[in-house]
Structures are given as C-alpha cells and as structure tokens.
C-alpha cells in the first residue's frame, strides 16, 4: 500500500508543471567583438544588449533590450545536419525539421519558416522577402518575415540572415512586435547582422 502511494505521489510530482527558473542576464557591451552561441560566429553590436543565460539549444543564444517578447535577437552558430533550430517541445507529435544534407542558401528561409510554424504553433507565418547577402566574406541569404499567433492580436515582424559553410548553418534573426518595437530597434539589429562573421 505504501509502495503504491509512493508511486502515485511520484506520478503526481511528475505531472506537475516544471519550474521555469528565472533567467539570468549578462551585459553585452557595445563596440566589442563577441563570439556567440558557443561557436565561431562573432558579432560587434553598436549598442549594449542583454544576453540570456538560458540557451534554447546548445548552439543557440538569445539577446534582448527590453524583454524577449519586445525585441529578440537569436543566434545559431554551427548547426549541423540532423539538428533543429529550436528545442523540440513535442518531438513525437510535432517534430521540428532538422537541417538536412545538401541544403543550400535558398533553403534557409523555408527551414526557418517551417521551424517557426511548429515552434510557435501558428499557420500565420510568412516570409516576405528574400535576397542575397554577405555574412562577413561568406555568401548568405537575408529575408524578412511576419507572423501572428492564435489568441493574440499582436502582429510580429522579423528579419534574418543565414549562411552555410560545408553544410553547417550560421543564422541571426531579429523579431519584435510590428507596432513600435520593430522599427525602434531595427537599426541596432542590422548593425549586429552587418558585423557578423565566422
């Protein structure tokens, strides 16, 4: 009986929501080159930013100015074949797409879009423009996007730059509410992207 009670209690414990520990933030000073996402991708911001101690994936990193829901820069450095852009929240039912062998620059926007559609659980995600770009001296692709999620009247906009070298992905995205925040901090995000190299 006691064993059964313990088992039941363990099941209850396991089913309780996990504790989302409060994040810690570190200052990223402006005008100093810094390697991001534990990889070789390096940027030099023109303004001070806050770096989150929590990493969405091992090769990812998040920066913000006022809070991730208001302005978020997401870095991915050195994603390899078989890895996902975000952490798989429901791998069994809604797996995130993985980076595949033979992927080219033009595939990056679609990979980003399909990853976000699943991660954000929204069908309202649109890539609005794709153009060739440079990440340092490497070829890259730059694109814009916008989306909304169910239950919120807020529209969000973003831009991203991605590059592939030997099948390994390097990516930076900037996302903010379309109202006020996107334009307010767009230049700071562009400065980060323009300084990026690996």
């Amino acid at each position: 009986m006691k064993k059964r009670n313990l088992l039941l209690a363990a099941l209850v414990l396991a089913s309780l929501p996990a504790a989302p520990a409060l994040a810690g933030w570190k200052l990223v000073p402006h005008a100093k080159p810094i390697a991001v996402a534990k990889g070789t991708l390096t940027v030099t911001p023109d303004a001070d930013w806050n770096r989150w101690s929590v990493r969405p994936i091992k090769k990812g990193e998040v920066w913000t100015l006022d809070g991730t829901g208001l302005n978020e820069v997401y870095f991915v450095s050195g994603l390899i074949v078989g890895e996902t852009l975000y952490r798989d929240a429901d791998k069994k039912n809604r797996p995130l797409p993985t980076l595949t062998k033979g992927m080219t620059l033009t595939d990056i926007p679609e990979f980003f879009e399909s990853s976000n559609r699943i991660a954000l659980n929204t069908s309202l995600f649109t890539v609005t423009g794709v153009e060739p770009a440079k990440m340092g001296e490497r070829d890259a692709v730059k694109f814009n996007y916008e989306y909304a999620v169910e239950g919120s009247p807020l529209k969000r906009r973003g831009m991203a730059i991605g590059s592939l070298s030997g099948g390994v992905l390097y990516l930076i995205s900037y996302t903010a509410p379309a109202t006020h925040f996107y334009e307010q901090n767009r230049a700071k995000a562009e400065a980060i992207m323009a300084s990026a190299h690996y």
């Binding site: 969405p56 829901g69 978020e72 991660a119 954000l120 807020l154």
Partner: peptide, 9 residues
C-alpha cells in the same frame, strides 16, 4: 520558441 514562451503575459 523562447518568445513564444514569454509572449503572453
């Protein structure tokens, strides 16, 4: 994904 977690107050 992170912004999704924190999006709605």
């Amino acid at each position: 994904m992170i912004r999704n977690l924190l999006r709605a107050v």
